[in-house]
Every structure is written in C-alpha cells, then in structure tokens.
C-alpha cells in the first residue's frame, strides 16, 4: 500500500482517538463557562512562565486521572507533539542564529506548546454539549440542532476517513482520490441524515445535564489557575 495513505490513515486514527475516544463521560457534565475561564487563565500563565506551564501540565494530568480518562491525555499529547516539535525547532534555529542557549530555547517552547495544547484539548474533552446546545437553543434552535449534529458527524466522518485511506492504500490508489470520494460519502451521509432526522427537528428541545462533582473540580482548577498568575 502507498506510504502516504498509511501515514494519513494512522494520523486520522490518532485525531479520532485524541478527540472522540469516549462517550458521554462525567467530565462533560460541568460548566462550559468555568472551563473557558480556566482555559483562558491557564493559557496566560503558560505564556508568562515556563514554571507555570509545567504546573499547568501537572494539574491537567491530575484532572485526567481524577476523571479516569487518562488515555485521552496520552493520545492528545502525542498529537500535540507535531506542532510542539515544529515550533520548538523553529525557535531553536532562530536562537542558534542569534547565538543563544539552544537547549533552553527548545525546551521553553516545547513545554509551553505541550501545556497550551493540553489545556485546549482539556476544554474540548470537557465541553458540556448539552449545555452548549441548551444555550444555543435560546438564541437559535436550528444552530443548536446543527451543533449537536456537527459533534455527531465529526467523529463519524473522521472514523470513515481512517478506514477509507487504509482501504484505498491497499488498493494502491492515489490519496487525492480518497479525498474526492470522501466528498461523495459526505454528501450521502447528509442525504441519510436529512431523511432520518427530518421529523425530529420539530420535537428538538435540549436539556442540560450537570454534575456537582465536575463543577467543584472546575472551581478548584480556576482557583489554581488564578494563583499561578502570581508566579
């Protein structure tokens, strides 16, 4: 099989596992607002100090263990390696040309990129879809319905992409053909959904699902992020 297809197939599999590995886990029953606040504050701390970035990485690691979803962290950090290494090497090259400490330059950017990615991915992994749909429903029912459907479709299409790339690779087909066929498959999926959920649009009314334990964890996280601002 072609090596490009194989690499892309493994890469999409990694994306699938790092974003959609689990079902509706407890971590998704918190407050999106609290999680957004934590993400913003944590990112500021990561940018300001390497030590804070290390602390944030540790805190995020603990959170994944507390929620029992540490496999998410594993796949996410592997995925984050790609931009982190690229950014670190670029920075290292610039510092090398300026005559600075290249090891420190590499580690500084690498640590911040990994910590930043971990924080953003934690937001994606703990986004409360029911709350998001509920809020959007107040603004526009169709946007809310589309949001739920987007989350449903994204994992489906990534999963199918992984398989198609591998199967077409076995066939010896060029990768661009797979991408073209993905559009056709996408169109077919849209047709099926149009029929399957046509009636449901009239009875759609999202409700929020919360967990007090998750909200308590989010408040603790927010306090930690605030304290890290003073480092």
């Amino acid at each position: 099989m072609t090596s490009i297809s194989k690499i892309l197939s493994r890469l999409t599999q990694l994306v699938l596992r790092s974003l959609f590995l689990y079902g509706l886990i407890e971590a998704r029953k918190g407050s999106t607002l609290l999680q957004l606040l934590f993400t913003a504050m944590a990112l500021v701390a990561v940018v300001r100090s390497e030590f804070a970035a290390l602390c944030i990485l540790f805190v995020v690691f603990v959170v994944y263990i507390v929620y029992g979803i540490e496999k998410y962290l594993k796949y996410s950090l592997v995925l984050a390696l790609l931009p982190a290494i690229w950014m670190s090497l670029s920075n290292m090259l610039i510092i090398y040309l300026k005559g600075g400490d290249i090891i420190r330059a590499f580690l500084s950017v690498f640590l911040r990129a990994e910590a930043g990615s971990a924080v953003v991915l934690l937001l994606l992994h703990t986004l409360n879809i029911s709350e998001l749909c509920f809020i959007l429903y107040k603004l526009s029912p169709i946007t809310s319905f589309a949001t739920a459907l987007f989350w449903r479709l994204a994992s489906q299409l990534i999963k199918e992409t992984t398989e198609m790339l591998y199967i077409h690779g076995l066939k010896g087909e060029k990768t661009w053909k797979t991408l073209a066929m993905l559009f056709i498959r996408g169109e077919e999926v849209v047709q099926y959904f149009t029929e399957g959920i046509h009636l449901k649009q009239y009875s759609y009314k999202p409700k929020v699902v919360y967990s007090t334990r998750v909200i308590a964890i989010q408040i603790i996280l927010l306090v930690v992020a605030m304290l890290l601002q003073f480092l």
């Binding site: 879809i129 739920a148 989350w151 399957g196 699902v209």
Partner: peptide, 25 residues
Amino acid sequence: FFYVPQEPWYSIAAPYPILELIFDD
C-alpha cells in the same frame, strides 16, 4: 409519527444516545 429509516444510524442526531432521548420535547 415516529419514523426509523432503513439506515438506523442516521435517525440519531445527538452525539450520545442519552442526549438524543432527553432532547425530545
């Protein structure tokens, strides 16, 4: 009416079945 099409996957719009059920008015 409640309609289940031939391809049953496409009658579920929510990313998790429990949400599909409780999002029904």
